[in-house]
């Protein structure tokens, strides 16, 4: 197995684990937030977990789009530069 295949395998696993973690964090966050524990800090932790899960899901969803956008902008910039001006003596 060459190194690129290894990295691609890692990427696939990272994507799958991220989706599962998003679901898990989302559920745990709501469970903590909705639990009948009258401690404000615990509720804030639940809220934070939900927010993080949503951000994670957002980044998984738009990640490939942003990479494509970077590719598009960079390919526009990769055109060859014009020749520099040569100073002419009078």
């Amino acid at each position: 197995m060459d190194i690129l295949t290894l990295i691609k395998n890692f990427i696939d696993r990272a994507v799958i684990i991220s989706w599962f973690l998003f679901l898990l964090t989302w559920v745990i966050g709501w469970a903590i937030k909705g639990s009948p524990i009258p401690i404000g800090k615990a509720r804030r932790v639940g809220q934070g977990l939900i927010e993080d899960a949503v951000w994670g899901a957002f980044w998984i969803a738009v990640g490939s789009t942003i990479f494509w956008l970077i590719y598009y902008i960079a390919s526009m910039l990769s055109t060859k530069f014009p020749n520099p001006p040569m100073p002419q003596l009078p």
Binding site: I3, I7, I11, L49, I60, G63
Partner: peptide, 28 residues
């Protein structure tokens, strides 16, 4: 090509850490 795939891996690892249900600020 290696740099490109490594950057994608870095991105998904970042997302994975974002989605972790462990509320440790240093890790997050």
């Amino acid at each position: 090509e290696l740099a490109y795939y490594l950057s994608i891996l870095t991105f998904y690892l970042g997302v994975l850490i974002y989605a972790l249900p462990i509320p440790i600020t240093g890790l997050k």
